[in-house]
Simulated assay, not measured.
Amino acid sequence: MSPPQSAGPGDDVPADIVEIERALTRVAHMLTRHRRHDRTVAAAGVPVDRAAVPLLRLLADTGEPMRPGELAARLAVEAPHVSRLVQRLEKAGYVERVPDAHDRRAQRVRLRAEGRDAVECIRAVGRRWMHEALGSWSEGERRLLAELVNRMVDDFLAHSAERDHHAPGP
C-alpha cells in the first residue's frame, strides 16, 4: 500500500487515491470543455447546447418520461435550470411534455424520436473518438478498464446512497 499523502489539512489519504482523484478531474475537465462539446455536436450534426446533453442522455437511458423535478434531482441541478432546458429542447423538437398518468395536474418530459436520434449521434461520435484515442490499447485492456470504471461508479453510487441514508434530516 502507498504511504499516506496529505490531501488537505489533517486529511491523510493513500497516494493512489490522490492520483485517481487527479485523473478523474482531468477526464471530467477534458470531457466537459466547450471546444470538445462544440466539435462533438458539429460532427454529430446535432445543434444542441452543452447543458442539454446530460438531460437528453438521461431521458434516453431511462426510456420513460420523467417529471421535471425528477430530472433536476437526477442531474443535481436546480428545477428552473431544467425548465429552461426543456423549453429549448421542446422548441428544437427533441422532447415533448406529456400528462402524468398518475397525476393529471403534473407533466412529464418525454424524449421524441428526434431526441433519441440526437443522443445516438452524439454517442456515436464520442465512441469513435474514444476508440481512436485508445487505439493502441488491447481489447483486454479496454475490457478491464470498462470493468473497473463500472465497478468504481457502482461503489461511488453505493457510498453516496449510504451517506445520504445516514445524513441528518433538515
Rank of each mutant, 00 (worst) to 15 (best):
S2A: 07
P4L: 06
P4K: 05
A7E: 05
G8S: 09
G8F: 04
G10Y: 10
D11A: 07
D12F: 06
V13E: 05
A15G: 02
A15I: 02
I17A: 13
I17F: 12
E19N: 06
E21I: 08
T25D: 05
R26A: 09
V27N: 01
V27L: 06
A28Q: 09
H29F: 09
T32E: 10
R33K: 15
R36I: 10
H37K: 01
T40C: 13
V41D: 00
V41Y: 02
V41M: 03
A42L: 12
A42Y: 07
A42T: 08
A43R: 14
V46H: 02
P47F: 07
P47A: 08
P47Q: 09
V48N: 03
V48I: 12
D49P: 07
D49H: 08
R50V: 11
R50D: 11
A51I: 12
A51P: 00
A51C: 03
P54M: 08
L55F: 02
L56I: 04
L58A: 04
L59S: 02
A60F: 09
G63T: 05
E64K: 13
P65H: 07
R67F: 03
R67A: 15
E70F: 01
E70I: 14
A72M: 07
A72K: 01
A73I: 05
V77N: 00
A79Q: 04
P80K: 08
P80L: 06
H81V: 11
H81W: 03
V82E: 00
V82D: 01
S83H: 08
R84T: 04
L85C: 01
V86F: 00
Q87S: 06
Q87V: 07
R88Q: 11
K91H: 07
Y94R: 15
Y94I: 01
V95F: 04
E96H: 08
R97T: 02
R97F: 01
V98M: 00
P99D: 02
D100Y: 07
A101L: 03
D103C: 13
A106V: 06
R108L: 01
L111C: 00
R112A: 09
R116E: 12
D117V: 08
D117R: 12
I122K: 01
R123C: 00
A124T: 09
R128Y: 04
R128G: 05
W129I: 10
M130W: 12
E132W: 13
E132D: 15
L134T: 15
G135T: 12
G135Y: 05
S136G: 05
W137K: 10
W137I: 00
E139Y: 02
G140N: 11
E141W: 06
E141Y: 05
R143W: 13
R143C: 14
L145S: 05
A146G: 09
E147F: 11
V149D: 12
R151S: 10
R151V: 03
V153I: 13
V153H: 14
D155E: 15
D155A: 11
D155F: 03
F156D: 04
A158W: 06
H159P: 00
H159E: 15
S160G: 10
A161S: 15
A161V: 07
E162L: 13
R163F: 06
H165A: 13
H165W: 10
A167H: 15
P168D: 05
P168C: 13
P170D: 03
P170M: 03
